[in-house]
Design a protein around this nucleic acid. Structure first.
Lengths: 338, 338
DNA sequence: GTGAAAGCGCTAACAA
DNA sequence: TTGTTAGCGCTTTCAC
């Protein structure tokens, strides 16, 4: 292991035969430095592999270049993609990202939200575990926050979300049109706003189709149990899963039970994942515009960090509804609609 | 938006009628503070929602509580899970994690590796994009680094990886035993050490089966093109995909071409993903122990950050080989082996 | 155009 | 037991 005494701006200054202030001026591209000194400093910097300490710099200048991101669960590829996209955008603006995940646990989220403040980020992008965010962000949270994906009880934050209700309604209407007469809608918890909005949207557009909601929770075991009950006892003509984990376990359970889709029942999901296009028939889904959400979130945070104090703003992005074989009555064809 | 003047340790001190040093002592649980003052300070801290500035603290005390993680691509759930696990472990040790992804791009990785130093992390866990890591970590990188998943050209770092060769050999031997007489092995690039090790392992255990390697690259379009060629022109009796993205596109292509598995050809993968158990027949895979890798990596980094200077160490963890329907000759049964 | 000095928030060392 | 002082690495201000 290589270990050497840390190199600071002083080390560089001495070695270049200039003052620390000059080194700082060179590194921050201040106009009034002699070309010769710039050259000299640059070469010492390269030689020593010196990198400015962002924090000491922030401490003195007050200029932050760190933003925080809090997501419910990094092992969900949806959130991974979200963070990835954010990171690219942040880099372009000279920011680094402190990413933390809350393991889908409100307590952990609270703890993380608190801990992240000790790094003094200039702002935060949060996908909250559930709606009761205000408990976790006391007024002493002195930084702009943009909430993504889920509504919260706190009206003080900008929000970027999707049109959950309309998209779910489109699925519901589609199922009804296809002639299915009963539909169970399964989702983690109605206390998560997007699940609630999706259910309400689906319910509103069911037409003649009997529709009902089942909350399955967030834990695999419980979800499996509930879905098994639904599939063996209630036997609806259609199943609509409102989130990825529910969809995954629902499909597993249907496969285990030997149920055929859409012969035995139709199947649709909110949240698209790779496997939904790999299985046969492919699965009808609502696809969320994750990259767009990330872009909108960063733009808004960027504005706020720049000092913008416009009234709090809510942005709803449109999803695309992908109708595929899993919900089509025999003889139907698949298509894509907005 | 809530904006108030930042609260520092001085604000707390004044408000509690004590000196900043006393506040510091209370917050760091130093033994010699009067219970009464502890109480007073605590209540002001709570009232103001004060949180210590970790960086100012580090600046003075020299104690770091930040570690960096560099992964090739966060939208890959494997890496997401890896980071998630690390995060939990780091928290337990009082560390926060600065996570950056390199978008599978060597240049970006280099840039990120450089930029991350400006945050002065106490150490780094890196899953490198490819083997030429030494270009990107000059000797001035004064911190312990643990490399995960992929070998590099730099012998100065601890390494946590899996037994790629043995596991791939197990798949190859299995295919051969099942009676397949030709196998194409497809993977991103042989310049990535684990792909190389997997190919070598597979080749070594092919027995009488004709086996050949195709590098398909990292970009979806190119991968698709190469696989289409393989499947339409070479028509091997078995296909073994060495990484997740190749596996995904291979399966899509096979589906698009209407090829049946294992009837038209057998299919196996290295790297397990959810969908591989959802499709029918389920797919034979090598499952990597991601959580174990994360745990081992953190333990090692933790040791190094604690000052340990033992010789560089390489750890190889075992994968589990999951034999499923996609490689079984008609009438065979599925099983699990180490 | 350059450098000396002050000070950002914090804590270690020491004085009271 | 508590407060004072100094200084971590940096940038800003202001002499020079």
């Amino acid at each position: 292991m290589k270990r050497r005494p840390p190199v600071s701006i002083k080390t560089v200054a001495e070695r270049a035969g200039v003052s620390p202030a000059t080194v700082s001026n060179v590194l921050n591209a201040k106009p009034s430095v002699a070309p010769e000194l710039i050259e000299r400093v640059r070469s010492v910097v390269a030689e020593l592999g010196y990198v400015t300490d962002s924090n000491a710099s922030r401490l003195r200048s007050g200029k932050h270049s760190l933003a925080g991101v809090v997501v419910p669960d990094l092992s969900n590829p949806m959130f991974g993609t979200f963070v990835s996209t954010l990171e690219t955008l942040a880099r372009e603006d000279g920011f680094d990202l402190l990413v933390v995940s809350a393991a889908n646990d409100v307590e952990q989220e609270k703890e993380r939200l608190h801990a992240i403040r000790s790094w003094r980020p200039a702002g935060l992008i949060v996908i909250p575990c559930d709606g009761a965010l205000s408990d976790r962000t006391p007024p002493s949270m002195h930084m702009p926050i943009v909430v993504v994906d889920r509504l919260t009880d706190d009206p003080n934050y900008d929000l970027i979300a999707v049109n959950n209700a309309q998209s779910a309604a489109a699925i519901s209407a589609h199922l009804s049109e296809q002639g299915y007469r009963s539909c169970v809608v399964a989702g983690s918890m109605l206390s998560i706003s997007n699940i609630r909005e999706r259910w309400e949207g689906a319910a509103s557009a069911a037409g003649g189709m009997a529709i009902s909601m089942v909350e399955v929770g967030l834990e695999a075991k419980g979800i499996r149990h509930r879905l098994y009950e639904i599939l063996t006892q209630r036997r609806p003509e259609a199943l609509f899963a409102l989130d990825h984990i529910t969809a995954l376990i629902a499909y597993q359970t249907m496969t285990d039970l030997g149920l055929s889709v859409p012969g035995d029942l139709a199947f649709a999901c909110f949240d698209e994942a790779e496997w939904m296009r790999l299985v046969r028939p492919a699965i009808t889904t609502v696809r969320q515009p994750i990259e767009e959400m990330a872009t909108a979130a960063w733009q808004q945070l960027s504005r706020r960090m720049g000092g913008n104090v416009d009234p709090v703003r809510t942005l709803r992005l449109a999803c695309s509804v992908e109708v595929r074989g899993s919900t089509l009555r025999e003889g139907g064809r698949s298509s894509t609609a907005a």
